[in-house]
Design a binder for these strands. Sequence first.
DNA 1: CGTCTATGTTGATAGGTGTCGATTCAGCTC
DNA 2: GAGCTGAATCGACACCTATCAACATAGACG
Lengths: 136, 136
Amino acid sequence: MSIQLPVLCSSVQTHEPLTAYEASELATAFKALGDPVRLRLLSLIAAHEGGEACVCDLTGAFELSQPTISHHLKVLREAGLVTSQRRATWVYYQVVPHRIALLADVLAPSDDPTTRRSHSSVASGCCAPVAAGATS
Amino acid sequence: MSIQLPVLCSSVQTHEPLTAYEASELATAFKALGDPVRLRLLSLIAAHEGGEACVCDLTGAFELSQPTISHHLKVLREAGLVTSQRRATWVYYQVVPHRIALLADVLAPSDDPTTRRSHSSVASGCCAPVAAGATS
DNA sequence: CGTCTATGTTGATAGGTGTCGATTCAGCTC
DNA sequence: GAGCTGAATCGACACCTATCAACATAGACG
């Protein structure tokens, strides 16, 4: 259900243009970010105590119905940007930091590789496809 | 015609959740990135000699009509991610590096502010709205 | 088991988006 | 000015998406 996002060697600002495949995978993630509600959901989850939040913590922040919030969370989940975890009656969502950091790296300028931010999973898996462990 | 993108103090991964306004402005930019064609256009322009490319350099890379490419370039331009410049018969597009770097910063983890990437215009204008000088 | 609460799913609908062909516009060259 | 080339715009169409109300599902609790 979730996509596989390749770890990239090229950045948007490198001399190596993105391949059609890379662009296609990345676009799915950026498209998920391309909605104000989902951006706020993401930051709300990250800002919430313990780095996780249940749906009931999130719906209150919007004047939207619960199914709509649930829909947006599904989009984020299928883009691999968050994971969900059921505990008792509640479903808790957490962000996937390395996934978001990967997107940041794609956008970051690459003219200064020495100071280039390196994130564990990103650095270790460069140029190799990495299965994104999203929720089942 | 172009949007104003505020320089943010909060990141997606901070304890400060995005405001509705910030999220709305950012979403416009991320939405522009949420299409594989536009992502490739962006990287093609950046990778092109001199950091700029005319439309005729770009259309050849896709099996899409010229109006379609022109449409995608317009979306990128209105999102403030590229600027255009007419020289003689040709129109040259260039990326707006600090704008893309700003998006990278929003996504980048903020738990380590000392190593946080700082880009000229971003760092200098923190928390103040910055007019994005896109093409007229 | 029945009920209650919290989430997810479905179906419907209005509006947005990507694409193209046809046309128009801008600037060069003759 | 006429004609040519590169690029933008327009109108139309198919497809996608955000949203809601209604319903279904999962687990807790009596």
